[in-house]
């Protein structure tokens, strides 16, 4: 307990999430723009956007309650907290015993719950519509997410992320259940982050927006925090995916050299995901809202098949 390094690492990890998330989103946007034959803004554009929003005045509707003002801070706070829990650089960090994967899902659910409340709070039509849609998707995505996580937990006999990472380190898993769980997780991550087949992150078209509709009333520093938290969420889901399915490179024991190596490997993996995501999105068309249930139904099916094939084939 006297070794300060794990504590330092926790802080470094959360700070890295905080500082690198806008770059990742900027990179995704840049790659997407290039794929669409646009020049696109540089990968640093999200930083400028955030700085601009922080400098602006925050306008709050006259009938907004405390929920509306409180939500951005809560969402931002829990996202940073989640960043300290997911093993990004090393396992067995001091905050790791605080929450396992299921609690992590609950933390994301808390943030979503408050955003949905804030969308309803002001009483505009768009906010309510966005909240309703978001909760519809959440009610389908969360069971599927938990199923996918249960599948990896069954394989590794633990719900603690640190143990899962350590177990997967022991041997490469050529298992059908693992592959199914991975595909399910990718589908769910697309839905949870409002990426293309479910929601379009670049649209303010009134009939199709989901996430954007909920936060339409926000401005200034409130909007900056929610946007920033959204960017961190994308990076967190990537990191969670890496931790659950491809954790090679995460340092087993906190030590100087291995952490530097872990940082490099992590950056390479994230860059690969941030390049793969827009390529994937380019190949897909946004689904009609009532088809989203089928999309998430498939994710649920895959996750359940992962669990079943674990019992049927891998005992």
């Amino acid at each position: 307990m006297n070794d300060p390094l794990p504590y330092v690492l926790t802080i470094v990890q959360a700070a890295a999430l905080l500082l690198l998330a806008p770059f990742m989103v900027g990179w995704v946007r840049l790659v997407k723009a290039r794929l669409q034959n646009r020049r696109g803004a540089g990968p640093l554009q999200p930083y400028r956007d955030i700085r601009k929003l922080f400098a602006k005045e925050a306008v709050v509707a006259a009938n907004a309650s405390w929920i509306f003002r409180f939500t951005p801070y809560l969402v931002f706070g829990v996202t940073v907290l989640a960043g300290a829990i997911v093993p990004i650089l090393a396992v067995d960090l001091p905050l790791a015993p605080v929450a396992d994967v299921i609690a992590l899902v609950a933390i994301f659910a808390l943030a979503r719950f408050f955003i949905a409340l804030a969308g309803l709070d002001v009483g505009t039509a768009f906010g309510g519509m966005g909240s309703s849609r978001e909760m519809t998707i959440a009610s389908l995505a969360e069971p599927a997410m938990l199923m996918a996580i249960f599948a990896t937990s069954l394989i590794t006999h633990s719900t603690s992320l640190s143990t899962i990472v350590a177990e997967i380190h022991k041997g490469v898993l050529l298992k059908p259940s693992f592959a199914f769980a991975l595909i399910a997780f990718v589908l769910i991550a697309l839905a949870e982050n409002g990426r293309i087949p479910v929601d379009n992150p670049a649209t303010h078209l009134e009939l199709t927006m989901i996430h954007e509709a909920m936060i339409l009333e926000y401005s200034g520093r409130h909007l900056a925090m929610i946007e920033w938290a959204g960017m961190m969420k994308l990076m967190l889901f990537s990191l969670l995916g890496i931790a659950l399915f491809a954790p090679w490179g995460i340092a087993g024991t906190p030590g100087g050299g291995s952490v530097v190596l872990a940082f490099g490997v992590m950056a390479a993996k994230l860059l690969a995901i941030a390049t793969g995501l827009p390529v994937l999105e380019m190949g897909l068309a946004k689904l009609r809202f009532f088809r989203v249930s089928e999309f998430l139904g498939v994710a649920f099916l895959l996750a359940t098949l992962a669990i079943l094939s674990h019992f049927i084939l891998e005992r």
Binding site: K175, P176, F180, V298, L302, S309, L313
Partner: peptide
């Protein structure tokens, strides 16, 4: 045996694909 398991899992998955 692992390859057989993987292939049979794929057969099952395609069964669901046919269904949908």
């Amino acid at each position: 045996a692992q390859v057989i398991d993987l292939l049979s899992a794929l057969v099952l998955l395609l069964g669901f694909g046919l269904l949908a």
